[in-house]
Design a protein around this nucleic acid. Structure first.
Length: 453
RNA sequence: GUGGUUGUAGCUCAGCUGGUUAGAGCGUCGGAUUGUGGUUCCGAAGGUCGCGGGUUCGAGCCCCGUCUCCCACCCCA
């Protein structure tokens, strides 16, 4: 018999891990509700035609494809079997794929349900997504995203609200973060200004690495991508802008004074900054002109969140996309959204051990009967405690007290109710506090009262 | 997808230049203790040495392939 295993980049979650993960999901969910977002779910698999071409060439490669059911090879003749390229063959034998993110399926959802939706539509969605990426620390092939989007509204107030949500969620986690903001329109303006409008994607991909690899290597990459020496030189003062957001805005306005789109981007960000500063934030809010983000459907504000106290990639991302539903035949709908990376947040909270004790809820009371008669006597009590909201369980087998005690110890159950013939006769329970080791004999209703105070 | 690295008990790891029956700690289970856990003592179970092939009288160790883990790219949560 072969040892069992699970696919590369996937994980099992133990009860303890699930308690922690649910704490994360519950926290995010309750903040979403607080801000008036409604939950939807979409299927794990989508038609490949929905997914392909939405994430760029790289993204298409990372899609998990599902083999057609039945005799998927039957429709091919012998010549096709040998002559088709693997891409052509894929198109013939696979027409479904696992979702790569939640945003594109959401766009598909909005188009299909446009007549039922009241716009502006504030929806959230917490589901797993799959990417055929090579796994690494903080990178899995199956992971959860926690998306919130607002579609059908151009207002920058939506961006401000999403930033408030991010701030509130990380405040509740007790995690210090920096929210980095930029705007694709500013990046367009910069590309225009250095005379390389057509190279926007290459520029954004390169400068996105600035923090990691430094100015020299970014410039080297830009030159390799075919930008002129002059254009790269012209870019330098923009990339190295320092100071507060307002100082950066002042300088940027001057640099991009001839670029209409650039000015628009600056105006948008200034509005978002002004509102956010007025409302107040616990997190740091930073204008980062080197922030670019890969997903090429973003058209306006873009944002990313970094944890301050631990080394980890971005733990939340988002931005505005002006025409995501356009590819599904519904033009003119603007949306803006964020996505919490639950799996990375999980890793970060683990490293810093930031879980509140009460979040890792557990059985509070274990009934430890000496035999079957005692167990039967305990059953109604068990029900009574549960009805009063005390999470309780009973050791079901007639086992030695030592074994029942070590079970309670192992499960970290704080109270054990010991019931033997003496207790049954007297109608009492002997309760042991597992932390202090103290033990006393009480009437069941007194114990119940104590545990529900 | 490219390059590198790793894999021995449930976990963390030893294992000599290739040489008899592959070890330790922790954990698990049983007992010391038939009404009491966390400490202590005694004992036991648990391994096709990731998988497949090769070299050799002989392979955990050498060679090839493959899978996995981790790291750097690519990209991203």
């Amino acid at each position: 018999m072969q040892k069992p295993s699970i696919p590369k980049g996937t994980r099992d979650f133990s009860p303890e891990e699930m308690a922690k993960r649910n704490y994360i999901f519950d926290t995010i969910r309750s903040v979403y509700h607080l801000y008036g977002f409604q939950q939807i779910e979409t299927p794990a698999m989508e038609n490949l035609s929905t997914l392909m071409g939405k994430y760029g060439e790289e993204g298409d490669k990372l899609l998990f494809k599902i083999l057609n059911s039945g005799d998927f090879i039957g429709g091919l003749n012998d010549a096709e079997k040998t002559s088709l390229s693997s891409i052509q063959l894929t198109n013939r034998i696979s027409e479904k794929g696992l979702r790569y993110d939640l945003t594109v399926p959401f766009a598909r959802y909005v188009v299909m349900h446009r007549n039922e939706i009241a716009f502006p539509f504030r929806r959230y969605q917490i589901q797993p997504v799959w990417r055929a990426d090579r796994p690494q620390k903080g990178r899995y092939r199956e992971f959860f995203q926690c998306d919130a989007d607002i579609v059908g509204s151009d207002s920058l107030i939506n961006e401000v609200e999403l930033i408030q949500i991010i701030d509130e969620v990380f405040k509740r986690f007790g995690l210090r973060v920096r929210i980095k903001l930029n705007n694709r329109k500013i990046l367009s303006g910069i590309a225009e200004w250095i005379g390389a409008s057509d190279r926007l994607t290459d520029i954004t991909v390169a400068i996105d690495k600035y923090e990691k690899i430094g100015a020299d290597l970014v410039n080297k990459e830009l030159l390799e991508k075919g930008l002129s020496e002059e254009a790269v030189q012209k870019l330098q003062p923009v990339l190295s802008l320092e100071g507060s957001a307002s100082e950066k805005f002042t300088q940027l306005k001057n640099i991009l004074r001839t670029s209409e789109v650039g000015q628009k981007g600056i105006d948008e960000l200034e509005t978002i900054f002004a509102h956010s500063e007025r409302l107040g934030l616990s997190a740091e809010l930073e204008l980062d002109l080197r922030l670019a983000r890969g997903l090429n459907y973003y058209t306006g504000a873009i944002l990313e969140v970094k944890a301050l106290d631990v080394e980890m990639g971005s733990i939340t991302g988002g931005g505005r996309y002006d025409n995501l539903t356009g590819v599904f035949g519904m033009p003119g709908v603007s949306g803006v959204g964020i996505s919490f990376g639950a799996d990375r947040i999980f890793d970060v909270l683990n490293q810093l051990d930031l879980y509140p004790k009460e979040a890792l809820h557990n059985t509070r009371l274990l009934f430890a009967p000496f035999g079957e008669a005692e167990a039967a006597w305990c059953l109604p009590l068990l029900k009574q405690f549960r009805q009063a909201g005390v999470s309780a369980e009973m050791y079901p087998d007639p086992a030695k007290m030592k074994k029942q005690m070590s079970y309670a110890d192992n499960r970290a159950i704080p109270y054990v109710a010991i019931v033997g013939t003496t207790e049954m006769e007297q109608g009492t329970i002997t309760v042991k506090n597992m932390q202090t080791g103290e033990q006393e004999t009480l009437k069941p209703e007194d114990l119940l009262h104590r545990l529900t105070q």
